[in-house]
Nucleic acid binder design. Sequence first.
DNA 1: CGAAGGCTTGACAGTACTCAACCAGTGTGG
DNA 2: CCACACTGGTTGAGTACTGTCAAGCCTTCG
Lengths: 249, 249
Amino acid sequence: MTIHEALPTTVPQCGACPIRHRAVCARCEADELAALDALKFYRSFEAGQTLIWAGDRMEFVASVVSGVATLTQVMEDGRTQTVGLLFPSDFVGRPGRERAPYNVIATTDLLMCCFRKKPFEELMARTPAIGQRLLEMTLDELDAAREWMLLLGRKTAREKIASLLAIVARRDAALHLRAPQGKMVFDLPLTREAMADYLGLTLETVSRQISALKRDGVIELEGKRHVTVPDYNRLLEEAGDDTDGGFVG
Amino acid sequence: MTIHEALPTTVPQCGACPIRHRAVCARCEADELAALDALKFYRSFEAGQTLIWAGDRMEFVASVVSGVATLTQVMEDGRTQTVGLLFPSDFVGRPGRERAPYNVIATTDLLMCCFRKKPFEELMARTPAIGQRLLEMTLDELDAAREWMLLLGRKTAREKIASLLAIVARRDAALHLRAPQGKMVFDLPLTREAMADYLGLTLETVSRQISALKRDGVIELEGKRHVTVPDYNRLLEEAGDDTDGGFVG
DNA sequence: CGAAGGCTTGACAGTACTCAACCAGTGTGG
DNA sequence: CCACACTGGTTGAGTACTGTCAAGCCTTCG
């Protein structure tokens, strides 16, 4: 694994960390945070890099500080399915597991807050707050995975695209501590192909449906990645979600 | 919620419980088990009954002792997706959550080992073994959900059916403490419609593909539910899984 | 300038869906 | 006892959504 390492321009203290309130460390007290602070180290990756290959030994666990990554599964014949999108504050790695079950790929430039697995597991064993928070986050991920199962199994191509846009909009709003509503502007962190792999579609279908949503005024595009949603509720209707899909943040 | 309550013919002590070694209580010591024993109560349900409606207040958490249940999501227009199959030892309910996110439906006659939510949460707070085991089980469920995402997004109808049969065969073998291999015989715990809802298909497509697998000698059928798999590896090939899909038990 | 990656659009094809008829087993009631 | 309804399942005919194959555009980069 060739890792492009670079010093982030700023190495925040945990207390000043942008994901402090949502990450695996969210429930830690000052002394526990100090222990994490001593263990942590940062790694940065470029868009397109594979951080971890399925089957690799996991040497570390990590939180996404900035950027977006995907978890993907690949079948023998090349069919690919993305099974998770990792946004800032999301956690990668399973304590107690030897090998990575999925490829982890940076889809934008990415900064990770890493811990060597062994010391992290030891710290976790004597810091209940970490295990509790990890359980909470895992249950949230399970909910997200099950919502995605509904999308993959039952939604049309158009609804799938609208759902993905809604999720990206929501996560982006959460980063800026805003509630998702009204007019929203954001950048797509994924290529058309990556979107297709997440939605269980081909990239051609993704392209066609994005064009259709643009034609119908559900979204506006500047370039290929910069999206304006004039009305978030309209987007949710297109996504086929009841009500507002709950507040995930 | 109308619940058909019946005394199970035998009410096992925890020490003699058939799911003892795999359920949420698996890691508990004798004294912790005694505390659980004092809290627990059994409920039985008939095939087809809905135990919990999405949006209901969750009064209890529970383990499946025998039988099979599904977790399902329903869209406003009626499209239905099953997002989880619950086999014996699987856990239902999320400590710390008020309302049920999914319908829970018994697809066979079902026996549940229940705990009122509040006392269970309190016990969990002072019994790390329970929280640890729950984290472990939740991570396993997350893996299963992600495997299902690959199925829903990328597999053909035929592969989906074969995958479902393989999973039922594997879980059934695990119940009898056998490894999945060679000739296997089991009963399908689901109707064609329930299978369709789990696989993201229509019941007609399910029926056609089962007929096709039968025609091709991958499976044999006695009645609609009783399945013989002459060669488990052949079934895995049809499912499109690399190798043997790992040992989930 | 040419090559490559990312994307869009068109033409056509195929898998799975829709609509519909029909079959088997079970339970009910005249 | 048998007609009848009902549930769960199978099969056929036609359709449509999405996939496949292909051409071509735009931007970036060497």
